[in-house]
Design a protein around this nucleic acid. Structure first.
Length: 503
RNA sequence: GAUCCCGUAGCUCAGUGGUAGAGCAUCUGACUUUUAAUCAGAGGGCCGAUGGUUCGAGACCAUCCGGGAUCACCA
């Protein structure tokens, strides 16, 4: 923060830097050839092998220094873990003179051989040592201790959530276990991509800056393009552009990318979040349920080696098939009432009977949704496909083939949260126009989350989109599920924060 | 927006109206297999800010600033 006001510890490090430079040391050299990671050394060391011949070069950040006079032990941390370094004055007298100039947080490279210390720790006995980066700012140093029962006690942990999010780079150094969450996140996305690619579907990119936003009900961020002198919205969904590609004859397309919604933030919402949407021609939502089951279980197995995952105290089994139930059946089971076809006033009466709190101004669909989220949703712990929503809730989904007033749509709920959303996509241009005009009139009545009328999109649907199934997955929520995290902030490297305001 | 909570050393925190504290980190010295290394010493603070109550405030009160959590909003 206060870049120009340095504390005594920082001032001392600056002095050390000057000392090193005047001693002819480059504190920031360009390259270092390393041959081993800490984890590789620890996993391949054998007491039988002749230690002296096991030469390694490692590099990492100094996390602890224990000086014993003419010998010093350090722990350095690299991407995969920590390893102890043993430095003896006799072996490298010149470097040893510089040792007082080094601090926790500096990055060094060590060439040496692997051995086991008297107390049993596999370590690197250094023959040469090189400073690779002098650190000017002290990092919080947690200390770990193992008590007599083998429990790990961490002292002085860097635990302040706010600071951990703001200074994620420090968090990653000091709390290296969180790296696993992000490794899993990466693997989840890689696995998903491979799953789709193996089936011949095409990964595409569509515009983030859009003259008209659509595909979901949400408020957008807006910006201005100077050259064209127009207002552009930052996308809230991928849907409408991906469907245009279906019209264009691409039979299976998907996109994994950020969406942006100018709305509140909480444990499951961040203003920018990662969405995957996929559209496959000639398929419907029933097919997509099977595909979803296969996708989710494949990813879970690949990432966790297991189909069971514990999150929020619930043990969740992701083995297919998943329970399928219609929205109104679930509502009937939970409330004892048949809510299908009720108008706004009737739904309000039902809500009152059920002690569901709704705002007096809520629309019909909002009341229904509120009843659902308070009575049904919390019970959907094990994976459940909630099927067949009212048409008013789903302006881009195809009318149900046999049920009046409903559309062919499902949402997959796991652990009480919505994980995916899917429709048999609406490709009847007349019906689509009516629905979007309906949205436009709701919008005109003041609901700024209703969809805008996108004539070009309607034109594309008139050109003709094949029968298509579409699926959206909130990647962040999938990552939360598969890593057992209960806040979206813990699966994002840099969650949105209020700007830091120092007075 | 509502409610609740937090702000003391670089870090983690204690301090319940009477001279500002601990551990770690930092500095000096000792120590050639240590591991929260140890031992001996040292420095480091506008106690978030302002006002008030009081003989006396880090503590109590008010306001403000900074931040967090929960709720609401986000179908």
């Amino acid at each position: 923060m206060s870049e120009f006001i340095r504390n005594d510890q920082e001032l001392r490090r600056l002095e050390e830097l000057q000392h090193l430079r005047s001693a002819g040391i480059n504190p920031y050299p360009a390259v270092f050839e390393k041959t081993h990671s800490s984890a590789t050394i620890l996993s391949t060391f054998s007491d039988e092998a002749p230690a002296a011949s096991y030469a390694v070069t490692v590099a990492g950040r100094i996390m602890a220094i224990r000086k014993m006079g003419k010998a010093t032990f350090c722990h350095i941390q690299d991407a995969e873990g920590k390893i102890q370094i043993y430095i003896k004055k006799d072996d490298l007298p010149e470097f040893y003179e510089l040792l007082p100039m080094l601090d926790i947080g500096d990055i060094i490279g060590i060439e040496g051989y692997v051995f086991r210390t008297r107390t049993g720790e596999v370590s690197v006995h250094s023959r040469t040592a090189t400073l690779l980066c002098k650190s000017l700012t002290p990092i919080p140093v947690p200390k770990e201790e193992t008590d007599e029962f083998g429990n790990k006690i961490v002292h002085d942990a860097f635990a302040d959530k706010e600071m951990r999010y703001r200074r994620r780079y420090v968090d990653l150094i000091v709390n290296p276990q969180i790296r696993d969450v992000f490794r899993k996140r990466s693997k989840i996305i890689t696995t998903m991509r491979r799953f789709f690619d193996d089936r011949g579907w095409l990964e595409v990119e569509t515009p983030i800056l859009q003259p008209l936003y659509g595909g979901a009900s949400a408020r957008p961020f807006t910006t201005h393009h100077n050259a064209l002198d127009i207002q552009l919205s930052v996308r809230i969904a991928l849907e409408l552009y991906l469907k245009r590609l279906l019209v264009g004859g691409l039979d299976g397309v998907y996109e994994i990318s950020k969406n942006f919604r100018n709305e509140g933030m909480d444990k499951t919402h961040n203003p920018e979040f990662t969405m995957m949407e996929i559209y496959v021609a000639y398929k419907d939502y029933v097919w997509m349920m099977e595909m979803t089951e296969e996708l989710v279980s494949t990813i879970a197995k690949e990432v966790n080696g297991s189909l069971e995952v514990e999150v929020g105290g619930n043990l969740i089994n992701l083995a297919p098939p998943y329970r399928r139930a219609t929205m109104f059946d679930l509502l009937k089971d939970a409330t004892g009432m048949n809510l299908r076809g009720l108008n706004r006033e009737e739904l309000l009466i039902a809500a009152r009977k059920l002690n569901v709190e709704v705002e007096a101004t809520s629309s019909q669909m909002k009341v229904l949704d509120e009843i659902f989220s308070q009575t049904v949703q919390p019970s959907l712990i094990q994976p459940t496909f909630v099927m067949d929503f009212p048409v008013e809730m789903s302006p881009l989904a195809k009318a149900h083939r046999s049920e009046d007033g409903l559309v062919e749509r499902f949402e997959l709920y796991v652990n009480g949260d919505e994980l995916t959303n899917c429709f048999t996509e609406l490709n009847d241009p007349i019906d689509q126009r009516e629905r979007l005009e309906q949205q436009a009139s709701i919008r005109a009545d003041g609901d700024d989350e209703a969809m805008q009328l996108d004539e070009d999109f309607l034109y594309s649907i008139e050109v003709g989109m094949p029968p298509t199934a579409g699926l959206g997955i909130g990647i962040d929520r999938l990552v939360m599920l598969l890593t057992g995290q209960d806040s979206i902030r813990d699966v994002l490297f840099f969650p949105q924060m209020k700007p830091e305001n120092k007075q």
